[in-house]
């Protein structure tokens, strides 16, 4: 047993370590754990006419019967699915390339793939409006060669999709690359040695080893898209809107915190499996 601990007990005091970690842990309890429980509690124990509170699922019933709310949830789920469908193949091919290539070109590709991590989404939103918006750069270029303008994705559901894919490329590539790093060169060479071609190597050797990383990447994407605010707020349509802007509007513009928190709890429920899986993988990685 370490000396500090023994000393701490011998004097009948709280160990120094606990004192040192107390402030941030208290902050986590107050600002994360407590709000979550409080959110569930205050959306289930609603004020009743007599001035007390009683158990009620009224706000949830409202959400799941209100077609506007349901549309917003649907567009969020749709965006999540579409983004994942774009992100996985794009990022997996980039990550596979980076895993097996080296040299200056590969370094350049890796640099570019990670670059969006350093671009705040608000600047990205602005850039995409300038490029893809009405009379944006793409329109300019098309016009200059005599082609018609594009159907701009700005203010349609595709606007947030483009932005979110752009924004999520770095982290997805990094997660997949880190998973691919665990597949040793030799185990791939051993497979080729026994006669596996590129496809069999990918299918039988690489893919089974990175399933976990793929699930982590998907979880991260799901969590990110369910909580996306800036990109859908700036690039997306006014209605239906994704959960992020929807919650913000309900909370600030409609001044209806209880409904907003109900919406938040619903996003928690949709993400809980992914969230737990993601946090568990991070924790496991950290231990190793």
């Amino acid at each position: 047993m370490p000396a500090s601990d023994i000393v701490g007990r011998a004097r009948g005091r709280v160990p120094t370590g606990l004192l040192l970690v107390a402030p941030p842990v208290a902050l986590v309890c107050w600002m994360i754990i407590w709000p979550i429980f409080s959110a569930i509690a205050r959306t289930l124990w609603l004020p009743d006419p007599e001035g007390g509170r009683q158990l009620s699922v009224a706000t949830y019933t409202f959400f799941f019967t209100d077609s506007y709310s349901l549309n917003n949830l649907a567009i969020t789920l749709w965006t999540t699915g579409v983004c994942a469908a774009f992100l996985l193949p794009i990022c997996l091919s980039i990550a596979l390339y980076l895993r097996f290539a080296d040299g200056k070109l590969a370094a350049y590709v890796q640099g570019l793939a990670i670059f969006p991590m350093f671009v705040p989404s608000i600047i990205l939103s602005y850039a995409l409006i300038r490029v893809l918006g009405p009379n944006g750069t793409v329109d300019l270029l098309l016009n200059s060669v005599g082609l018609p303008k594009i159907n701009t994705p700005y203010l349609t559901p595709w606007g947030p999709v483009i932005g979110l894919v752009w924004d999520n490329i770095p982290i997805t590539v990094l997660i997949l690359l880190s998973g691919l790093g665990a597949v040793s060169d030799q185990s791939i060479e051993a497979a080729r040695d026994v006669g596996a071609n590129r496809r069999s190597v990918f299918w039988h050797i690489i893919l089974p080893r990175i399933t976990n990383s793929i699930l982590v990447a998907i979880s991260f994407t799901v969590l990110g898209i369910f909580s996306a605010f800036t990109l859908p707020y700036v690039l997306g349509p006014a209605a239906p809107e994704m959960m992020g802007p929807f919650m913000q509007r309900t909370f600030r513009d409609l001044n209806d915190p209880t409904t907003a928190i109900t919406q938040a709890v619903i996003t928690f429920c949709f993400c809980i499996a992914f969230g737990i899986f993601y946090v568990r993988s991070v924790a496991k990685n950290r231990k190793a």
Binding site: G17, I261, Q263, V279
Partner: peptide, 30 residues
């Protein structure tokens, strides 16, 4: 340092990351 609950407290900082961030912000805003 060693102290009781070291591991669980260490991983408690992950708690916020198991939830969609904006939902959490709304809950905190409440």
């Amino acid at each position: 340092l060693e102290f009781p609950g070291r591991n669980i407290l260490f991983f408690s900082f992950l708690a916020g990351h198991a939830f969609p961030k904006f939902g959490l912000l709304v809950a905190i805003a409440g």
